[in-house]
Design a binder for these strands. Structure first.
Length: 488
RNA sequence: AGCGAGGUAGGGUAGUCUGGAGUGCCCGUCGGGCUCAUAACCCGAAGAUCAGUGGUUCAAAUCCACUCCUCGCUACCA
């Protein structure tokens, strides 16, 4: 049987100690764009995001707010959902690690891993900084003191259960070798590869001091460490082991993650899955980080970017476009309002908006037949755009789409339709309107709202990737408002 | 310190694996053209000892060695 094309993409689940900033927005918008692209292709698509709600930090934050952990995280979760709605995120599933169903899944998976002989009881030893309430490894210490605050640290020992990560070194290396794209992008791959080659240590997966989390099923005194429980969200959301969605969508095609959590997703997660007898995901892609106006984003610098504010001020699609156009997914980049404004004015207004506007203006004053021979189809390379998107090169895909927009703009200049009339003008308009219709489809994953506006003005239905070919134009042009407004 | 990535015009990048004229792209700057369009659109120009040194070669941004600089990762703070 030939498997139907399917696409399962995930964002990390976001930790609930603060409201979403541009970093969260970036990952989520990028995943949204990829999910929408696959829907255009007709793939059965499942796009998962969610929240990571357990652990000490959430517990403490709740206490400070005078709420129970559950009450507290409920509040943050609705904030996340509000932001995702504002950013037009088309998620299919929203997983919360405090859902009882998730907790049951985790417990079941842990039991399988235990049954496989990969969990044992031991002692966790670490250097503990009491004022910071943080454990450090020997390597992290700075001159034998806490690297964060410089104060003395104490060697503490506590009972803990361990996962035999060391046992999976060879199988992980085989996984990386058999699936060259598993570790993505390439620049990050070697980082992981070399560390795995250097050898893996077993990892402590439980704590006795924390209550807000999933109870360790084999010893109720212990609570699972929050990241262990968090990783399993990707399968609990699909109803592992028997759920229909799990059968349809697992393994994940892409886990999109920030580079700070690459280790967990590229090493620990597949090892846990292998141990539980579950197929590992196909790809873990670690994207880059944003600086803001040249500096690290920090509250104390006053340069933290609020995604909703940006969307309100400059239009949502200009913001989404800027996130994906500024740098390739794997790289770091700088976010600035000036940069956003420049892109809005010079690319969205001047290239895309202007193409639509001039086309529609000329078409509105034309009463002949809009028909002709395709002339603008040869320079359109939908296949290239698709290949770039398959490689998660959203940046390159946008460049390819916009280079086509430029060609269409140049076509207007070359043909000087304002000097033409009759069939000649009908032919030029035919080419422009078909180009605009196709461009609208191609940009729709990036800028869904703008795509709808374009369709309204040229009287086109929303299309899919198969519609990106020249055919008789049967829309009805209704000139509307400017697609984007220029900002001073 | 170990491991990794990178240093190409004012900024950002592609090209490096598989050597062959500094070739390309985006933004910015300057000049011209056009006028359907949101002072827009089109064309053109300026601008680079391709981090440095040494080597291999007929030929090096590209291969080799060394040096300098920047950034990331180093596991149980999600």
């Amino acid at each position: 049987m030939i498997a139907l094309p399917k696409f399962y993409i995930t964002t990390p689940i976001y930790y609930v100690n603060d409201k979403p900033h541009v970093g969260h927005a970036y990952t989520t918008v990028a995943a949204d764009v990829l999910a929408r692209w696959h829907r255009l292709k007709g793939d059965a698509t499942f796009f998962l995001t969610g929240t990571d709600e357990h652990g000490e930090k959430a517990e403490i934050a709740a206490e400070k707010a005078g709420k129970s952990p559950k009450e507290f995280v409920d509040g943050i979760v609705s904030e996340y959902k509000r932001v995702w709605e504002a950013l037009n995120i088309s998620y299919d599933g929203f997983i919360r690690t405090s859902d009882p169903a998730h907790e049951e899944t985790v417990a079941k998976a842990i039991e399988k891993i235990y049954a496989n002989g990969d969990i044992y009881k031991g002692f966790y030893e670490g250097w503990y900084c009491i004022p910071d309430e943080t454990f450090w490894t020997e390597l992290q210490l700075k001159d034998g003191k806490c690297p964060e605050c410089g104060r003395d640290v104490k060697l503490l020992k506590e009972e803990s259960y361990f996962f035999k990560l060391s046992k999976y070194q060879d199988r992980l290396l085989k996984l990386y070798n058999d699936n060259k794209d598993f570790l993505s992008p390439k620049a990050r791959a070697k980082e992981i590869l070399n560390r795995v080659k250097d050898g893996l240590k077993d990892i402590s997966i439980t704590r006795t001091t924390i209550k807000w989390g999933v109870t360790f099923p084999l010893d109720k005194k212990h609570t699972l460490y929050v990241w262990v429980d968090a990783l399993f969200n990707y399968i609990s959301a699909l109803g592992w082991p028997e759920g229909q969605k799990f059968k349809e969508f697992w393994p994940a095609d892409v886990h999109l993650v920030g580079k700070e959590i690459n280790w967990f997703h590229s090493v620990i997660w597949p090892a846990l899955l292998l141990s539980a007898g579950i197929e590992p995901p196909k790809k873990v892609f670690a994207h880059g980080w944003w600086t803001s106006s040249g500096r690290q984003m920090r509250k104390s610098f006053g340069n933290v970017i609020d995604p909703v504010l940006m969307a309100e001020k400059y239009s949502l699609d200009a913001f989404r476009y800027t996130l994906l156009k500024t740098m390739p997914l794997g790289e770091d980049g700088d976010f600035s309002e000036d940069g956003l404004k420049t892109r809005l004015n010079n690319e969205l207004v001047a290239e895309l908006g202007n193409l639509l506007n001039r086309t529609v203006t000329i078409a509105a004053g034309f009463d002949g037949k809009i028909e002709g021979k395709p002339e603008l189809d040869a320079c359109l390379n939908v296949k290239l755009v698709d290949e770039l998107m398959e490689r998660l090169d959203t940046h390159g895909a946008l460049e390819a789409i916009f280079s086509y927009i430029k060609i269409a703009n140049k076509y207007v200049n070359d043909k000087e339709p304002w000097k033409l009339k009759g069939a000649e003008l009908g032919n030029v308009l035919y080419n422009l309107l078909e180009a605009v219709r196709i461009i609208s489809i191609l940009v729709s994953p990036f800028m869904p709202g703008s795509s709808e506006k374009i369709n309204a003005q040229i009287g086109a239905e929303p299309g899919n990737l198969g519609d990106c070919v020249f055919r008789p134009f049967n829309g009805k042009v209704v000139k509307g408002e400017h697609l984007f407004r220029k900002m001073p």
